[in-house]
Amino acid sequence: MSNEPWLTVGEGVQRQVLTYGPDLMLVKVRFATGGIGALHQHVHSQITYVESGVFRCTVGEEETVLRAGDTFYAAPTVWHGVECLETGVLLDSFSPMREDFV
C-alpha cells in the first residue's frame, strides 16, 4: 500500500499515487456516486481497471457503462472521462508517468 496521501481532486473524487517510475505510474481514484472525472486529454497512454462501482465512461466518440472487472484504454491525446453511477474505485495506469501528479 502506498504511503502517499489521498488528494481531493474534485467533488466526490480522491486520488492516491500508488507507485511510479519514469515510464509507468499506477494511481487509485475513488469516487462517490455522482463524482465526475471531467473530459480531458493528455500525452500519456492510459489503461484503467474498474476495481469496484459502476461508471459511465467516454473515450473519444464512444460511451459505455463499466462495472467491476471492466477496463478501458485511452490513447494519447484522445478525450476521455467518467461519471460515477455507483460509488467505486478505478485503478489508472499511465505511460509515461504523470509528472503533474507528483
Results as ranks from 00 to 15, higher is better:
M1C: 14
N3L: 12
N3D: 14
W6R: 07
W6G: 11
L7P: 14
L7D: 13
T8H: 15
G10M: 04
G10P: 05
E11G: 14
G12Y: 05
V13S: 04
V13F: 08
Q14N: 15
Q14I: 11
R15N: 04
Q16W: 08
V17S: 06
V17R: 12
L18Q: 11
Y20E: 14
G21S: 09
G21Y: 10
P22H: 12
D23L: 11
L24T: 06
L24C: 09
M25L: 01
L26I: 13
V29W: 10
V29D: 05
R30S: 09
R30W: 09
G34C: 03
G34E: 00
G35K: 04
I36Y: 11
I36S: 10
H40D: 03
H40G: 00
H40Y: 08
Q41A: 06
H42V: 01
H44E: 02
S45Q: 14
I47F: 11
I47C: 10
I47G: 07
Y49W: 05
V50R: 05
E51I: 14
E51A: 10
S52C: 07
S52A: 06
S52V: 04
G53N: 02
G53Y: 02
G53W: 00
F55P: 02
R56Q: 10
R56K: 13
C57P: 10
C57K: 11
T58I: 02
G60I: 05
T64I: 15
T64V: 15
V65R: 04
L66V: 00
L66T: 00
L66S: 00
A68R: 05
A68I: 08
G69Q: 04
D70L: 07
T71G: 07
T71M: 12
F72D: 00
F72G: 00
Y73T: 09
A75H: 05
T77E: 10
T77A: 15
V78G: 01
W79C: 07
G81F: 03
V82M: 06
E83W: 08
E83K: 10
E86Y: 06
E86H: 11
G88A: 06
L90R: 04
D92G: 02
D92N: 05
S93Q: 07
S95Y: 09
P96D: 02
R98F: 04
E99S: 10
D100W: 13
D100M: 13
